[in-house]
Amino acid sequence: MSASLRGRTLRRSLGAAGLSGLVAAGLLLSIGTAEAATLFGADFESGSTSGWSKSGGTWSVVSDGTSVLAQSDTGSERARQFAGNTSWTNYSVQARVKATAFGSSAGVVALTGRAAGSTKMYRLSLTGANRVQLETMNGSAVTVLGSLAQTISPGTYYTLKLSFSGTTISGSVNGAGVGSVTDSTIAAGRIGLLTENAAGRFDDVVVDDGVSTPPLRRRPRRRPRRRAVRPPPPARRRPQAPSTWPRRDGQRGRHHLRADHADLGDHADRRGRHDLPARWHLRALGDGHRPGRQQRVVRRAEDDLGVPR
């Protein structure tokens, strides 16, 4: 194989391996970082305000780098746009919000949530007094739940976010917390855009269910336990049945013995038998006979007779 062909083959194999690695990493990333479900979204690029309901003010879709929804009447005491579902309870709403002009220091440009009516809602407000405030609006009463000093520059977009989880209400601006409180005034409601004695613009409105899937934790792989290898049992040595001891004729030689269990009185002098203790009778066997299972009996007999080993 030529050097150039080997190089092309190597590059192809590395490219395939790299692609498979990227696919696997992408799958792991998608599993580990699942996002909350989106309930509603609006970027106004279509030029339409379909899905929104207006209450007061002068509203229109205008161009501001992208298409945005604008309220241009600074003299309007209270202008609102509502969207979504009145049954929404636990969710987060986020939008880019810009104040273009304040009619007074009391002017407000706000993002609202859990709007149960035209004057009952939570709101996160950019104020003409250079503050961002988390507020409850209930009729004509407005209660400040949290506040953050922030220079509000007309013409600058700020990312506002309201989150609701049970009785926990929280708000942030550009990622900085404005407040997180416990309040049960309003349990459910729609989202909204609001101005009071101010003009403002709104874009990139997103509502999600506020429930994110935590990354999956991989359990460490268990290593298989290594079982101790037991050594095989030592081979049993079979006892040798034959032994050397004096024969009847006075010579020393090899005798095979067989034990016969007999009654106590049955050990009289008989042909081929020896006078042994009452519990043993031995019979001399010819060469070549292997007693097999009676070896242990033979050894015990030899011990009784005092036969040398």
Results as ranks from 00 to 15, higher is better:
Leu14Thr: 12
Gly15Lys: 02
Ala16Cys: 09
Leu19Phe: 11
Gly26Gln: 14
Ala34Cys: 10
Thr38Gly: 04
Phe40Glu: 04
Phe44Cys: 01
Gly51Trp: 02
Ser67Asn: 15
Ala70Glu: 13
Gln71Gly: 00
Ser72Gly: 06
Thr74Phe: 03
Gly75His: 00
Ala79His: 03
Gln81Ala: 13
Ala83Ile: 05
Thr89Gly: 06
Arg96Gln: 08
Ala99Gly: 00
Thr100Asn: 04
Ala101Pro: 03
Gly107Cys: 01
Ala110Ile: 01
Ala129Cys: 02
Asn130Leu: 02
Thr136Gly: 00
Met137Trp: 10
Met137Val: 14
Asn138Gln: 14
Ser140Ile: 04
Val142Met: 04
Thr143His: 05
Val144Ile: 13
Thr151Tyr: 03
Pro154Asp: 12
Gly155Asp: 09
Thr156Val: 12
Leu162Asn: 10
Phe164Cys: 09
Ile169Trp: 07
Ser170Tyr: 02
Gly177Pro: 12
Gly177Met: 13
Ser180His: 05
Thr182Ala: 13
Asp183Pro: 08
Ile191Cys: 02
Gly192Pro: 06
Thr195Tyr: 07
Asn197Gln: 14
Gly200Val: 06
Val207Met: 05
Val207Glu: 04
Val207Ser: 04
Val207Leu: 06
Asp209Phe: 05
Gly210Ser: 04
Gly210Pro: 09
Thr213Met: 13
Pro220Trp: 13
Arg223Val: 10
Arg226Gly: 05
Arg248Val: 11
Arg252His: 05
Arg252Glu: 00
Asp260His: 14
Gly265Asn: 14
Asp266Glu: 14
His267Arg: 15
Arg271Thr: 14
Ala278Trp: 15
Gln295Ser: 12
Val298Leu: 08
Ala301Thr: 01
Glu302Lys: 10
Asp304Tyr: 08
Pro308Met: 10
